[in-house]
């Protein structure tokens, strides 16, 4: 655990704020249960990721400047989203006048599970969650932030989310046939390549169904929104929760 309670800023991606407030609440409560002092700076906006991934990175300067100004005084910035963290770390334009702040911030932004395992150094979480849980590795978290090993690389297997989940009493971890295949969300890809996106999502859901996943979880609500959207449309009896929700529930 980190000493003399550093200031932790909670970065809640826009779609979590709007569609999944419960994930924001769970992230906040979870961090507090783990002994952190967390605050949520008001006035957060979209970080600009959908624009940048669509080829308009240069038009995200406003959003980026706003982000730096909101978060520059925190010791750590934590977000329940691998893909938004990757964006604010790797895909933002340089902001004139804020170079120092931007450079420092780069090392202070963490995805939720990596913050818990790498900064808080939590080895295992005590709690109970008697369900069969399938994990969706979001690509930006996995191959962008290296939150888990990727099947293409010859490396020792690891998975930061699994590390936090696997000790929960009663939790059954689902081994998938394709451990880290993309779900097909891909931001604007989900719309510009609609047919492919939906096919990819269906294939992921099939893999989970074949392995009797009861609750599908992950670190990125955007992937889950896409998968849940397909599952609901097809009346698949699968539950969806963000990993923060599982951990928060399990501890209480």
């Amino acid at each position: 655990m980190i000493s003399d309670s550093p200031k932790i800023g909670l970065f809640i991606p826009c779609y979590v704020d709007q569609f999944y407030p419960q994930v924001g609440v769970a992230s906040l409560e979870l961090l507090e249960k783990l002994g952190c002092k967390v605050s949520y700076p008001m006035g957060q906006t979209c970080c600009g990721q959908p624009l940048a991934n669509s080829g308009y990175e240069r038009d995200t300067a406003g959003a980026t400047r706003h982000f730096i100004e909101l978060f520059k005084d925190f010791d750590y910035v934590v977000a329940p989203s691998g893909s938004c963290v990757l964006h604010v770390k790797e895909h933002v334009p340089a902001i004139p006048g804020l170079e120092n702040e931007q450079a420092k911030l780069h090392h202070k932004v963490f995805e939720l599970t990596e913050f818990i395992t790498d900064v808080l150094k939590v080895e295992k979480i005590e709690g109970k969650f008697p369900h069969r849980v399938g994990f969706h590795s979001s690509c930006h978290g996995q191959r962008g932030l290296r939150l888990s090993s990727s099947s293409e690389l010859n490396q020792n297997p690891f998975n930061k989310a699994k590390k936090l989940l696997e000790n929960l009493e009663g939790l059954e971890w689902v081994e998938l046939s394709r451990t880290d295949e993309c779900c097909g969300f891909g931001g604007t890809f989900s719309v510009t390549e609609e047919a492919l996106s939906v096919r990819m999502g269906k294939d992921r859901l099939e893999d989970h169904a074949q392995h009797q996943t009861e609750i599908l979880t992950g670190g990125d609500m955007s992937c889950i929104m896409h998968l849940q959207g397909i599952a609901t449309r097809n009346k698949q009896p699968l539950k969806f929760l963000h990993i923060a929700e599982i951990l928060n529930q399990a501890i209480s």
Partner: peptide
Amino acid sequence: MWIAAGIFKSPLAYKISGSLMRKAL
């Protein structure tokens, strides 16, 4: 138009980030 449609029609952008992106485009 195709790219913009991608940005504006995905639910996140469509509902939330409209003003930010409208300024850009």
